[in-house]
C-alpha cells in the first residue's frame, strides 16, 4: 500500500511540476520546477527498482545539466510579457495539434495488444545481481557497438562546442606559469648606480 501511495505522490508531483515548467511566469522558477520533476522521476525509477538509473538521473540531470541551465537562465533578461504575446495567436493551432496527438494515443491505447514477441520481455527478469552490474554486463557485451557510438556522439558535441565558441583574441596576456617561474634575475632586474641629484634617465 505504501508503495502504491508513494507512486501516486511522486507521479502527481512529477506531472504538476512538469506543467509548472511551461506555465510558470518566471523562467528561473521554470527551471526549479524542472529540477523538481527530475527528482520525482528519479524517485519513480527507484520505486521500479532501477536504482542505478535513478542515481544517474540525479547526478547527470540535476547535478550537472540543470545547474548549467539555471546558470544561464539566471543571467538572461527575459521580458515575459513579450514572450507571451504570440501565445494566444498560436493557441488554436497548438490546441488542435495537441488534441490530435492525444486522440491518437487514446486510439493506440484502445487497441492495445502486445505482440507475442513483446510478451516475453514485459516483465524484467528478476535476478540476484544488483542492477548496476546487470546493466554493465549488457552494455559492455551485447550493446558494445551502441555504447561506443554514443561516445562518438558526445565527442562530436564536444568538438562542435569548441569550434563554435573558442576564440583566441590577440593581445591578451595570459599566465604562463612555466615561463614565469623559469624567469631569472638577470632578465628582470637591472641594478643602476645613481648619483645623488641626477636620477636615472632611461
Amino acid at each position: 500500500m505504501i508503495h502504491a501511495l508513494a507512486f501516486y505522490v511522486f507521479a502527481a508531483v512529477t506531472v504538476v511540476s512538469a506543467f509548472m515548467v511551461i506555465s510558470a511566469r518566471n523562467p528561473v522558477h521554470s527551471v526549479l520546477y524542472l529540477i523538481l520533476a527530475f527528482f520525482n522521476s528519479a524517485a519513480l525509477f527507484l520505486l521500479m527498482g532501477a536504482e542505478f538509473i535513478a542515481m544517474i538521473l540525479v547526478i547527470v540531470y540535476v547535478g550537472a545539466v540543470a545547474v548549467l541551465f539555471l546558470f544561464v537562465v539566471m543571467m538572461l533578461d527575459i521580458n515575459i510579457a513579450e514572450l507571451r504575446q504570440g501565445f494566444l495567436k498560436y493557441l488554436p493551432i497548438g490546441a488542435a495539434v495537441g488534441i490530435a496527438l492525444f486522440a491518437e494515443i487514446l486510439l493506440a491505447l484502445g487497441a492495445w495488444s502486445v505482440s507475442p514477441v513483446a510478451a516475453g520481455s514485459l516483465r524484467a527478469k528478476v535476478s540476484d545481481v544488483p542492477n548496476t552490474e546487470a546493466l554493465g554486463r549488457l552494455i559492455y557485451t551485447d550493446y558494445m557497438f551502441l555504447f561506443q557510438a554514443a561516445g562518438m556522439v558526445l565527442l562530436i558535441a564536444m568538438i562542435g562546442a569548441i569550434v563554435l565558441t573558442l576564440r583566441t583574441r590577440p593581445g591578451v596576456r595570459r599566465q604562463k606559469i612555466a615561463a614565469q617561474i623559469g624567469r631569472r634575475r638577470e632578465e628582470a632586474v637591472v641594478l643602476v648606480k645613481t648619483r645623488v641629484g641626477e636620477g636615472v634617465s632611461s
Binding site: M55, I59, V62, G63, T132
Partner: peptide, 14 residues
C-alpha cells in the same frame, strides 16, 4: 543501499 557511492555523489552535487 547498493548504489551508496552514487547516492553520496548525487547528494553532494545538490
Amino acid at each position: 543501499i547498493n548504489v551508496g557511492i552514487l547516492y553520496l555523489f548525487a547528494i553532494s552535487s545538490l
